[in-house]
């Protein structure tokens, strides 16, 4: 029974990692750059939600929609202002820009007096509720995160797999220049992907707020979501969720059954093992461009 409860705890946390990892995968999949500010986008989404809840007094679900819309616009603008100037440069340049963006976002948020330096909570209607069955418990916050993770990964997977725009995005990811030559509007697509990825980050931020609180450094969870994306293959959306799940469950089991400290190295060990056995991750495409 205890084992099952610990696995449930791991699954809950795994979906948190997976939800953040989705954003990493989205941008990589479409622009072949890694967005190291993904965690910070999530933090901005959460702060947006907080502002909408405290200043505009909106209820939780409206807050969720509002911050998704704001962050989507922000993502689009970020691509236009910061990423477009390095368009066509090696993807390394774009990565450096995103690292800078992360620092900037954290710095700017802490400059807002009385708001950016404190921890805040966001009241969700389901906060504190638990589902109990046969001695096992799971928090309602986690149930919502699991639902959102499944829904988002399925929707986005469908978008990439079956729609014209999604297939165009895949083409851009494989070779930007070739895609541009065959007439795909690469720039516009990149903007769209950034908007999408920032929107996913906002969902993660607002859903995570009732458990992990809103503060300037909440984006550091990206450091855990990144290995989750790597395990999943980095270009597979369901892989991101699966990677998060594997990581969460292994962490939880290592934390309980293994000696002290193993919980924290478990993530790195799993990444190393996966990369050694399957260099392209569990769900990654085997044939990929060498960068």
């Amino acid at each position: 029974m205890q084992f099952v409860q610990i696995v449930i705890g791991g699954i809950s946390q795994g979906f948190v990692y997976g939800l953040v990892a989705l954003g990493f995968v989205l941008i990589y999949k479409a622009t072949e750059a890694v967005n190291f500010a993904q965690g910070e986008l999530m933090m901005l989404g959460a702060f947006c939600g907080l502002a909408l809840a405290t200043w505009a007094g909106l209820p939780y679900w409206a807050v969720l929609l509002g911050s998704v819309a704001i962050l989507a616009a922000f993502g689009f603008a970020t691509e236009f202002v910061l990423l477009r100037p390095v368009f066509g440069e090696p993807s390394f340049s774009a990565i450096m820009v995103t690292i800078g963006l992360g620092f900037l976002a954290r710095g700017l948020v802490t400059m807002i007096p009385g708001f950016g330096t404190d921890s805040h909570s966001l009241d969700a209607p389901f906060k504190g509720q638990v589902i109990e069955a046969g001695g096992l418990v799971i928090g309602m916050e986690h149930v919502v995160i699991i639902g959102a993770g499944l829904l988002l990964s399925a929707t986005l997977y469908g978008l990439f797999r079956f729609t014209r725009i999604g297939i165009a995005m895949q083409a851009v990811s494989q070779n930007q220049l070739a895609a541009w030559y065959v007439g795909i509007p690469v720039r516009r697509l990149n903007g769209l992907v950034w908007a999408l990825s920032a929107a996913v980050a906002a969902v993660a931020g607002v859903l995570l707020a009732p458990i992990a609180f809103i503060h300037a450094n909440m984006g550091f969870i990206g450091l855990k979501a990144f290995p989750a994306a790597v395990i999943g293959g980095f270009d597979s959306l369901p892989g991101a969720i699966a990677g998060g799940l594997i990581l969460g469950v292994i962490e939880a089991l290592a934390g309980f059954y293994l000696p002290e400290g193993f919980k924290d190295v478990a993530a790195s060990v799993v990444v190393l093992v996966v990369l050694a056995v399957r260099p392209h991750g569990l769900f990654g495409q085997a044939s990929r461009k060498r960068v």
């Binding site: 705890g9 791991g10 948190v16 992990a212 962490e251 939880a252 089991l253 934390g255 924290d264």
Partner: peptide, 21 residues
């Protein structure tokens, strides 16, 4: 029982389960 976490952690389920056990 003695258990730890890394700064910035948000999930304490296995540690709390250990203390309870």
């Amino acid at each position: 029982e003695s258990t730890t976490y890394k700064r910035g952690a948000t999930d304490f389920s296995s540690q709390v389960a250990k203390l309870k056990a």
